[in-house]
Design a binder for these strands. Structure first.
Length: 809
RNA sequence: GCUGGUGUGGCGGAAUGGCAGACGCACAGGACUUAAAAUCCUGAGGUGGCAACACCGUGUGGGUUCAAGUCCCACCACCAGCACCA
């Protein structure tokens, strides 16, 4: 027999699969049920695929292959997320046209993905930067605009001075630019917003419905940041009691309302202008406003310790429940963008309020039991203890849980309070001052204002240029391309100009799974019936770093498209699996930037694709971070070698009696593990089976046949080759073996025998006998008999097929 | 600080409340070989003992249970997300 030459064999099958379009998904298959597996498409970077890509692609591939063998019509597509910064940066640095950069990048990574033996449908490849694709990204934007979900506004946004562009909140998490890692500052600019905040509740529903690890759901809920409380309106007066109108505050702790000793307003508060004639120290106040404006919101947020404030002298708010007259302060811990930008301050029960009160010598009123002498008794503490209220009028003496609903009711009845829900998530700032992105299909006309382009004129092509830098005003590079900027108004036909900002790199990825169902459609983003046929993505694999960005954007757009009738379902994904990281020997993430990466192709060249696939996943669970190591790869190559040599010990037909239990267990175990993407335990199950056949010195032809099919999703090359050699047929045409429920246990099994929960002996028994017979049999054993002699058996526990425990006295 | 997760041999890691450490690596001994590699066989959680065996063992301390890595309570460490969100 020829020794296994992985280079030859793997190349042969990879070529064959592509040439024969072996993994084509069939629209509207007449008999097979559909299954949609998706791997998060890679950013076209011009670089090489890294280990992280193996962590995500291979389980998806194994699942796709497993489902096909189980009779499913599988859609397993791939494409390139191509409007991204790598292309833009390369253009700025080397002058290479991003169009060319992406073309080369796509070719390179397609080639590399093929070398991983992945079973993609190569006829459905998409490129988000191609006009055929971004026509529909622009179309979706037009729909958002027409339905009032997109608006342009002057606003204070995150801005990266290094990349010279605005960023969304999602792109500047932790105050760092998502792309360059530099510090993000706040800047006032024209911003295109998408009304994502409006979708908060729907997104939370998506989060509830998707099958996903709890910690990921939690991260998303955290980001959306729902909090339920009350909005309360307080009267304003001057010293002599003159009515100055009202102020709205938001609180989640209405139970502390009797403890208000001042109100804190965001420094930007519009109330200052409104009340200016009554504020005695207006110069001081304006000065304070100017000072805080110099500090960015992020800076203010990150400097948690040095809280500052400024009294609005001469104006007061009236606490509606006890008519206390309390002063107003501007305080920089209050954020203008959250809630109403004003809070009721209760120093005894909120640490921030406490700190300000100490600094300004503001009195405190304790309204809930606890020790307030050195710090505030905060919500978490008094709720946990369900403490009693103090100094709270008719509510004094009640427990918090009892008082709170009654207080809410009272304020609602008084007509000054209403239940209110706030979200931390903000609208999505959607424009960037970059060249390499989708142009906005928006025209500005002096007569007609902001005018959307006609849908039939899409796509609006991104013009070619060789100048990829923003101008001195920080406007997008497109603003320098006159032929692009100048246009006619679609409404009145007069001279007009185009929006020159482009969409963020997240735009194209916010709907791409829909396009795969009908990637070449030039009439629609995808045919409705095809969308309906393929439905939601059944299993979506990819990194966890996109969980509070891409995945939320995906939920948002799919909800919107559903509402306008463009897609048949609200849920983009049925199940989302977050792949773990591959770590280096220091326990750090392998990445290009930290230069600690091991190239997958280095491993593939040395050990082969099958071995690399198995090894990466034998290292640990799919969702776990696993440290990379070559240790253990010898075990994998030895295993594959043993698989290859099974050909030499074929003896007999059918499934042998001796192997029946092992084989049936293997079928069951491996099937379950593929469904759950637990590839590491699947691999160990194969090893156990192969050990058994080698001990016995043979494998029957039928056993080998089934074994190869089971192993095929993980090690597709070697199993395809062996199947062809031994059976002269194609493994892809085979069907998944079924296991027999009755053949999962041996007729004779070993059980543990315990006395008083301590292991005394192990015994072999017939697995079919009754519990009574087991007990009788066990008691005949010498060791057991002597141990229980003269004692009274209090309790007898039999766990079928596992153990017997006798409790004696 | 809040939320979630994790904690098991020398290492990667297995265990629907039911014999902890599957499977693999590394290691040791043996076979084959002039020799080495590869391959095959055997051993192995720790402590004590020639041994049979005994005791101890899943981050720490309690608890529930006939039985706890698994469930409950408290704590520690690490990882991740959020963080002046009223």
């Amino acid at each position: 027999m020829k020794e296994y030459n992985f280079k030859e064999v793997e190349a042969k099958w990879q070529k064959k699969w592509v040439e024969e379009k072996a993994f084509q998904a069939i629209d509207f298959h007449p008999t097979k049920p559909k299954y949609y597996v998706l791997y998060e498409f890679p950013n076209v970077s011009g670089g090489n695929l890294h280990m992280g890509h193996l962590k995500g692609t291979i389980p998806a591939d194994a699942l796709a292959r497993y489902k096909r063998l189980n009779g499913y019509n599988v859609l397993f597509p791939i494409g390139g997320d191509a409007f991204g910064l790598p292309a833009e940066n390369a253009a700025i640095k080397t002058g290479i046209d991003p169009h060319e950069f992406v073309k080369e990048g796509m070719a390179k990574f397609s080639d590399q993905l093929k070398k991983l033996g992945l079973s993609f449908d190569w006829d459905r490849v998409i490129d988000t930067s191609s006009p055929e694709y971004y026509k529909w990204t622009q179309w979706i934007f037009l729909q958002l605009y027409k339905h009032g979900k997109a608006y342009k506004q002057r606003g204070v946004v995150n801005f990266c001075p290094n990349c010279n562009t605005t960023l969304s909140n999602e792109d500047s998490q932790g105050g760092k630019c998502d792309r360059c890692g530099g510090d993000v500052v706040q800047k006032e600019r024209w911003v295109w917003y998408l009304k994502m905040k409006e979708y908060s509740e729907k997104l939370l529903d998506n989060v509830d419905r998707v099958e996903m690890a709890e910690y990921l759901k939690d991260a998303q809920r955290n980001w959306i940041g729902k909090s339920e409380g009350m909005q309360i309106s307080l009267k304003l007066e001057n010293e002599s009691g003159q009515d100055l109108g009202q102020v709205e505050i938001f609180t989640t702790c209405v139970e502390t309302i009797y403890g208000i000793t001042f109100l804190a307003l965001a420094p930007e508060s519009k109330l200052v202008d409104k009340l200016q004639t009554y504020i005695k120290n207006i110069d001081e106040v304006k000065k304070y406003q100017k000072q805080t404006a110099l500090r960015s919101e992020f800076e203010r947020k990150s400097n948690q310790k040095d809280k500052t404030g400024c009294l609005l002298s001469g104006v007061y708010a009236i606490n509606p429940v006890n008519n206390h007259k309390v002063p107003l302060y501007l305080a920089d811990f209050v954020l203008a963008g959250y809630g109403t930008g004003a809070v009721m301050a209760v120093p005894s029960h909120d640490q921030r309020d406490y700190d300000i009160a100490k600094a300004f010598n503001i009195p405190m009123i304790q309204v809930i039991e606890g020790d307030c002498s050195s710090h505030a008794v905060e919500k978490a503490e008094y709720l946990a203890k369900n403490s009693k209220l103090l100094n709270s009028g008719e509510f004094t003496g009640m427990k918090v849980s009892e008082a709170k609903p009654k207080m809410i009711e009272k304020l609602v009845k008084m007509g000054i309070g209403k239940k209110q829900i706030n979200y931390q998530m903000q609208d999505w700032s959607f424009n960037r001052q970059r060249y390499w992105g989708e142009p906005f299909p928006i025209v500005f006309c002096d007569h007609c204002g902001t005018v959307p382009m006609d849908e039939k004129d899409l796509p609006l092509l991104l013009p070619r240029t060789n100048d990829y830098l923003p101008n001195e005003n920080g406007d997008s590079p497109l603003s320098k391309v006159e032929s692009f900027v100048d246009c006619k108004c679609p409404k009145c036909g007069r001279d007009a100009h185009r929006e020159t900002d482009t969409m963020p790199n997240w735009a194209g990825s916010s709907w791409y799974w829909l396009r795969y169902t009908d990637p070449h459609n030039s009439e629609k983003l995808a045919d409705f019936d095809k969308l309906k046929y393929w439905g939601s993505v059944d299993c979506y694999t990819g990194g966890t770093e996109h969980i509070t960005r891409h995945v939320l954007y995906a939920f948002f757009w799919q909800n919107f498209l559903y509402e306008i009738g463009a897609v048949p379902t609200r849920d983009p994904f049925v199940r989302k699996m977050g792949s773990g990281l591959i770590l280096d020997d220091q326990g750090k993430k392998m990445s290009k930037s930290s230069k600690n990466g091991v190239s997958p192709f280095e491993v593939i060249n040395k050990y082969g694709t099958d071995a690399t696939r198995l090894h990466v996943h034998f290292l640990g669970g799919y969702e776990d971070n696993t440290p990379w190591s070559y240790d253990g790869i010898n075990g994998i190559t030895a295993f594959l070698d043993k698989v290859w040599h099974l050909q030499e010990i074929i003896k007999g037909d059918g499934v042998s009696k001796e192997h029946a239990v092992e084989l049936n267990r293997l079928i069951k175990k491996v099937g379950e593990d593929y469904e759950d993407l637990k590839l590491n335990t699947a691999i160990s199950a194969f090893m156990i089976f192969i050990k058994k056949t080698r001990e016995d010195g043979y494998i029957t032809k039928e056993e080998l046949r089934q074994f190869l099919i089971l192993l095929n999703p993980l090690a597709p090359h070697i199993t395809s080759e062996m199947y062809e050699i031994v059976f002269d047929e194609q493994i892809l045409d085979q069907t998944w073996p079924k296991y027999d429920e009755n053949k999962l246990t041996y007729s004779e099994i070993e059980i543990a025998v315990q006395i008083n929960s301590k292991l005394v002996t192990r015994m072999k028994i017939d697995s079919n006998i009754t519990n009574e017979e087991i007990l009788k049999f066990v008691k005949q054993d010498e060791k057991v008999a002597s141990a229980i002699a003269g004692k009274y058996v209090v309790k007898e526990i039999v766990v079928p097929n596992r153990l017997v425990n006798l409790i004696v006295k």
